[in-house]
């Protein structure tokens, strides 16, 4: 639900509540749900891309150089990237989950 729709009265609702604008979920920023933030350590990264594959919100994109880039507007802080990171096998996960309070 985007800010535009928040002003809609019941008469403005499209029939069947159909979302007529494809892909508008991108306007719905879910980063505010996050209580922990994944902080990336480039030195640990072997560019395996597992974090990109596992992220349930597609909040990780891969840069041209082959590194993950986390879109914090959408990251809900689930920590799956930190856990599934190949390097976590060696205790060297690329992501450390840090309390969101520390960024205030």
């Amino acid at each position: 639900m985007t800010s535009k729709e928040k002003t809609w009265t019941w008469r403005d609702i499209p029939v069947g509540a159909v979302v007529e604008e494809p892909g508008n979920a991108s306007e719905y920023l879910t980063g505010g749900w996050r209580s922990e933030r994944p902080v990336f350590t480039p030195d640990h990264c072997v560019q395996c891309g597992l974090c990109y594959v596992y992220c349930p919100d597609a909040a990780i994109v891969m840069t041209r150089e082959g590194y993950p880039d986390i879109r914090l507007d959408y990251c809900k802080g689930c920590g799956i990237c930190a856990r599934e990171c190949f390097m976590s096998t060696f205790g060297l996960s690329c992501f450390e989950m840090v309390d969101e309070e520390e960024f205030r």
């Binding site: 639900m1 403005d12 509540a17 159909v18």
Partner: peptide, 19 residues
């Protein structure tokens, strides 16, 4: 493309039901 049968937050559901 359109999305049908989407989810609705509490700000939205009431208006859908009224319609």
């Amino acid at each position: 493309p359109v999305t049908m049968g989407d989810f609705a937050t509490p700000e939205f559901y009431l208006e859908v039901k009224k319609a």
